[in-house]
Design a protein around this nucleic acid. Sequence first.
DNA 1: GCTTGCACCTACAGCGGCTAGAGGATGTAC
DNA 2: GTACATCCTCTAGCCGCTGTAGGTGCAAGC
Lengths: 142, 142
Amino acid sequence: MLTIGTLAKKTGTKVQTIRYYEQIGLMPEPGRSQGGQRRYGLDELDRLSFVRHARQLGFSLDAIRELLDLSDHPEKSCAEADAIARRQLKQVEQRLARLEALRTELKRMVRECSGGQMSDCRVLEVLRDHSECLTDHQEIGA
Amino acid sequence: MLTIGTLAKKTGTKVQTIRYYEQIGLMPEPGRSQGGQRRYGLDELDRLSFVRHARQLGFSLDAIRELLDLSDHPEKSCAEADAIARRQLKQVEQRLARLEALRTELKRMVRECSGGQMSDCRVLEVLRDHSECLTDHQEIGA
DNA sequence: GCTTGCACCTACAGCGGCTAGAGGATGTAC
DNA sequence: GTACATCCTCTAGCCGCTGTAGGTGCAAGC
């Protein structure tokens, strides 16, 4: 039987995060000691490892919830899990494309900075005038 | 004189976002009509355009605040603005590197999925066992 | 048995960067 | 003068945690 702190260490999670996962129903309510402290078994260790690993790969908690539901039905077809992973891959590729455009723009901005006075600063100039940009980079976020 | 809605349209911002920027001190308190509605001039249009463009390039609101402060002192050296941009570039490059690692892992996961039953699903298998991964992808977020 | 001191408990607030909604006032075109 | 879009303030919610306050449990050393 593991305390929440031990489980946290074993999975590289913060204690509060485990309690948060319980609160939103991602982790089950565990057994308790006589004094009311949470006690975990190996099932919970596996489940939390799964969750953490999926998080590291960028899956949302909702996607993880789906994947966990799926893994409770081993007789089902693999198609749904596959679709979730493909969706995630697509998102990652979109974010990559956008970040690459940003990198290009930022590099140019920095390269052109002559190190003079603020009034001639290319950085500020480019930020002031989007038409100087080579790419669109329309979207904000992620 | 522009209404908040017109300013929003011209800059591709939501009305609420403009009020939010005012609330956190990123945009100044504008003049008001007799009835109490906000009225903006060209200065505010420029400032908001600057903010939005910097946001599109991924700068945080704090970084943008610094850049705005700097651009109010045109006699200062350009070094600080340059540093902020370089910091941003570095962040973007770090995120790129991590996303590329994720893409590799996700691609492998999806490629190896044979389309059979959930019990043989490579997607779930890889998520269950981190040791199957080629990269570390330690960090969560961004 | 008793104390120390860390780990645990609940409950709630806060982060960034918005976004949405309620419920009401204003402004403008006909 | 009336219809209707737009504006106002205020508050709460999104994601995925993280931190804090104020209190309790537990195990080890004496």
